[in-house]
Write a protein that binds this DNA or RNA. Sequence first.
DNA 1: CACTTAATTAAGTGTCAACTTAATTAATGG
DNA 2: CCATTAATTAAGTTGACACTTAATTAAGTG
Lengths: 107, 107
Amino acid sequence: MIEKVIHAIAEPRRREILNLVRDKELTSSAIASHFEISAPAISQHLKVLEESGVVVVRRAGTKRYYSIRREGFSEIKQYIDRFWDDSLLLLKEAAEEEERRKNESNE
Amino acid sequence: MIEKVIHAIAEPRRREILNLVRDKELTSSAIASHFEISAPAISQHLKVLEESGVVVVRRAGTKRYYSIRREGFSEIKQYIDRFWDDSLLLLKEAAEEEERRKNESNE
DNA sequence: CACTTAATTAAGTGTCAACTTAATTAATGG
DNA sequence: CCATTAATTAAGTTGACACTTAATTAAGTG
């Protein structure tokens, strides 16, 4: 699913939508009112966000309330951390560099 | 810069490149040898990755060694954490839900 | 200096996805 | 059941971008 999540959050307008629904659920039209673009365009964005798992819908009558789904970010978080969080690897590299300098001075 | 980083890592082949240079630096051609696509295509990907700040180049003669630049992920990590890491907000939501149930039983 | 190696930039092509307007679905209220 | 409201799906257009091959830059090496 990480493929879909990255694709979903790569689009600037979709990230704005995520910011809007981060704290409170909003209807499709309430979201659309924050933008210049048409309601169908928003609807299409919401579909992408929902199918990637980063938002959920609650239906009530003719309205649909969108809100964030935090677990949807779990995989991408892990992915990013593989690159960022690697303090162990940094130490490993330092050790290797140390090793290299030793070897050089012996040659 | 988050805009550029997200765009950079959104592309599947660029993520594969990141995996390759995650642990050790590699030349452009060494990277290209892992793929079916042409060397210029790889070069273009590397440019995007570099300009977004997630990789760095070290030039040595005619060769260019690419390696990961971990700090490049700092902003995107923070961004993701704003959605994921919000355990406080989850508690807040639970409290609100509790509140809602109380109100309902009073009506 | 010509030749080779490593890589990039240039220029052009096809695909995809973010929009548009128009049409459709779905739930509710008189 | 018709009208209204909320939202989506459909169909078509446009621009971006991931490729391609060809040309260019740059750094050694005989």
